[in-house]
């Protein structure tokens, strides 16, 4: 992978040694309940290889597990991340070498997850993507990635930077995909 994963963790009491091992069970429960707002965030730079994509997915999934996300939430976020990264390579980096890296940033808290994927391509107009669920488009073999991301990322999906950056949010207590 071109560029190492950089981790920037805030407010993780255990990592900062705020909960001594000698504490009693009761005190540990209280500490966990009053644990400060935990944020796990990192920036990764995958190239267009399955190995790099899996490394990003595994990093995000691990952060989700540590923050207590259930299986359905992890399924939703992983699917959106997969579709977002693959789309960025397939469309954003069309014509660019496989070594050209994306910038994937994630921020996971117990309540919400934000993913952003920035490619080095020329950008695009999201409105130009046809609705794959219209009867006339149902049998098109492509075009479902964006709609799946919109369906599963219940906190919203939008583009910035002329379409080169995709930002999507998942709310832990938000609605399920419809």
């Amino acid at each position: 992978m071109n560029g190492q994963r950089t981790t920037d963790q805030h407010g993780d009491a255990e990592q900062q040694g705020a909960i001594p091992a000698s504490k009693t069970g009761v005190e540990q429960v209280l500490s966990a309940a009053s644990k400060p707002f935990a944020l796990e965030t990192a920036t990764m730079h995958p190239a267009n290889s399955r190995q790099d994509i899996l490394a990003v997915e595994e990093a995000v999934l691990s952060a989700l597990v540590r923050n207590g996300y259930d299986e359905a939430s992890r399924f939703a976020i992983r699917l959106a991340l997969e579709e977002g990264i693959v789309n960025a390579f397939l469309h954003g980096h069309r014509g660019l070498p496989n070594e050209t890296t994306l910038t994937v940033h994630y921020a996971v808290t117990p309540d919400e997850t934000t993913l952003s994927i920035t490619d080095q391509g020329p950008g695009f107009n999201p409105a130009s993507v046809p609705d794959p669920t219209l009867d006339e488009n149902l049998e098109l073999p492509s075009g479902r990635g964006l709609m799946l991301m919109r369906a599963y990322m219940n906190g919203g999906v939008h583009h910035e930077n002329g379409g080169s950056t995709l930002v999507m949010k998942y709310l832990r207590n938000g609605p399920s995909a419809e």
Partner: peptide, 16 residues
């Protein structure tokens, strides 16, 4: 356990 939109596309091709 997991299926991407790329796999859905190929299923459509196979169906055709």
């Amino acid at each position: 356990d997991h299926l991407s939109s790329a796999a859905l596309g190929k299923l459509i091709t196979i169906n055709n």
